[in-house]
């Protein structure tokens, strides 16, 4: 699949070093619980950033803060130089799209229709032109459908467009969710556990798909528990523990850090650390 599919205007390899997304001391409290505690994160153009951490570390909550589904208690999120309002719709319009940890497709719509819904924010034909089938409506409907079919092809679901989303195999649902997110023309894609529940072959395919998306010039932030996957894929990795950034660095650095291992599986019981 050529890189022109996603960003016709760039050649796909112009990986700049400008900061695209900057989260600045983002804190999210639910009552007395601090789920995310002043987390800083930057994402540069064309970068794949991994977000790891044990269950309950606040990864998904942080995602929700980034995408406007939660209003952070303090801190702010800047995207391409402007502060993001806490409205999911505005965030999508600005160029950030996400997938969900537990797949949230529109189950009773076909695959093609699901992706077409993703085009909603990039089209604008209103009620009047839809009713009279005005030229704008016709042009947009045809373009929407073509683009949706193109994206289904891109994620490897070409020819599956007519199936109901709820009737598709699990792996394909994940792909479809990515296609739907891509349909919003994002500059940054946030993937929440894209390989959860997949077998090794499917994980490999997903990895290959994410690389292809990166090659088209998109930046990607990915939450994942599969360490092999994350270290193959990511330029940079953040490890979150109990809402705080434990360590940030290249995949190799994070992998070899004893604190990360400790956070996941605990430390051996020693004389210096009898409580572990």
């Amino acid at each position: 699949m050529s890189t022109a599919v996603l960003h016709p205007e760039t050649d796909g390899h112009a990986v700049g070093r400008e900061v695209m997304l900057r989260a600045d001391k983002v804190t999210m409290k639910f009552g007395g619980l601090t789920a995310v505690d002043s987390v800083d994160m930057t994402v540069h153009n064309g970068e794949i950033v991994g977000l790891i951490g044990p269950n309950g570390a606040g990864k998904t909550t942080f995602f929700n803060c980034l995408t406007g589904m939660y209003l952070p208690t303090s801190g702010q999120v800047t995207f391409n130089g402007s502060v993001l309002p806490p409205k999911p719709r505005e965030v999508v319009k600005a160029g950030m799209a996400r997938t969900f940890q537990n797949i949230r497709l529109f189950p009773n719509m076909t695959a093609l229709e699901n992706v077409m819904v993703g085009r909603y924010c990039r089209t604008s034909s209103g009620a009047f032109t839809s009713i009279i089938h005005g030229p704008k409506y016709r042009a947009e409907e045809i373009a929407t459908r073509e683009r949706a079919a193109e994206l289904l092809d891109f994620v490897g679901l070409g020819g599956e467009g007519g199936h109901l989303a709820r009737n598709m195999p699990y792996g394909n649902q994940r792909r479809l969710e990515i296609a739907r997110a891509l349909a919003t023309d994002p500059k940054l894609l946030l993937l929440d556990e894209p390989t959860a529940g997949m077998n090794p072959q499917e994980t490999k395919d997903a990895e290959e798909l994410i690389f292809r998306i990166r090659d088209t010039g998109l930046a990607i932030v990915v939450i994942e528990h599969d360490m092999k996957f994350i270290f193959n894929l990511c330029d940079r990795v953040l490890c979150l523990v109990r809402g705080k950034v434990l360590i940030e660095g290249t995949a190799g650095e994070v992998q070899s850090d004893p604190r990360v291992i400790e956070a996941y599986i605990g430390s051996p019981k020693t004389k210096e650390n009898p409580d572990a």
Partner: peptide, 28 residues
């Protein structure tokens, strides 16, 4: 006509999963 348009798709999406629709940029 509304049912078969972009607006109709938006309505279906809202019925199916309002939060997901919002997160996909639908003006709920």
């Amino acid at each position: 006509r509304l049912n078969h348009s972009r607006i109709g798709r938006g309505w279906v999406a809202i019925r199916e999963d309002e939060r997901a629709a919002e997160a996909m940029g639908v003006n709920v």
